[in-house]
Simulated assay, not measured.
Amino acid sequence: MFRRSPASGFTLIELMITIAILAVVTTFAVPSFQSLVVMNRLTAEANEFIAGMNSARAEAIRGNARSVLCRAAVTAGQIDAAGGCVTDATGTWAGWMVFIDADGSGAYNPDAATNPVEVVVRTHVFLGDQVRALASPALAASGNRVVYRPDGLARAPGQTMLQSGTLRLCTVIDGMTSNARDVRLGGGSRIGVARSTSASCAAPGDT
């Protein structure tokens, strides 16, 4: 005769306890993971913007000409360079571009015959509704442009004073602190990043 071996597996009580523990762990883990994703996203966007500013400065020095980083429109997920810089002082940035300002106008005016070296050297599109980019009053008043001169220093269009301003990169998420990164330009060349909290993702101040 064969003996029937006892059935193995989880009891109903053990299964319910396991599910309860998983529910508790998930409650704490999901918000933390979400915050981590947002922080990494903001850091990546801030680093990309800083790289754009450094690229504009390097191009100005290398080419002995003005170089501009400015707010640009986005069409079908691509920077609309032909549309030029977006100078509107309100709203969020959809993206930005860096171009050689060969004619010193502060605007993107390429022309194969008369202005052949005025070219776009770098572009970036922000992550749509995931990241909001807002300019401080000084940056907005400069037509959303950072203009580097051949000496490597930034001065706003038509100005002789060194340029300062801030671009805030922000994500709206309930209950999260440090949901913004403020990329600051000071003294025409100093670039820094600061964490900040803005529940509504409001535009930053100049300092």
Rank of each mutant, 00 (worst) to 15 (best):
R195I: 09
S142T: 10
D111K: 04
G83H: 01
G52Q: 05
A65S: 14
A60S: 13
H124M: 08
Q130C: 04
S105F: 04
M16S: 11
G175L: 12
T87G: 01
T123N: 10
M53K: 05
Q163I: 13
N179P: 10
R41A: 09
R190I: 15
A73C: 01
T197V: 04
A112N: 00
C85H: 02
P6F: 03
V24K: 07
L169I: 13
V131W: 02
Q163T: 14
A141D: 09
A7L: 06
G77K: 00
F10Y: 10
M161Q: 14
S55A: 10
G187R: 09
G95C: 04
S35V: 02
G83C: 03
E59K: 11
P137C: 12
G91W: 00
M176I: 14
R3N: 06
V117S: 12
P150D: 06
S105M: 05
R71P: 02
S32A: 15
S164A: 15
V120K: 00
F2A: 07
R145E: 08
C201M: 15
G104P: 04
V24Q: 01
D174K: 15
D129C: 09
G152Y: 03
G187E: 12
T18W: 03
R4F: 12
P6M: 02
S5L: 08
S136M: 08
P116I: 02
V38S: 11
D80E: 06
Q159L: 15
A56H: 02
Q78L: 13
A113M: 00
L153P: 11
A112P: 00
I79S: 07
V120N: 03
E14K: 05
P157T: 10
S200P: 06
R122W: 01
V131Q: 07
E48G: 08
P204C: 11
R184N: 10
G83D: 01
L22H: 07
R168C: 10
A107K: 11
M97Y: 03
A194R: 15
C85L: 07
A203H: 01
A202C: 11
V86Y: 00
G95N: 03
M53A: 11
I100L: 05
L134G: 09
A194P: 08
M161P: 11
A23F: 08
L169D: 08
A203I: 06
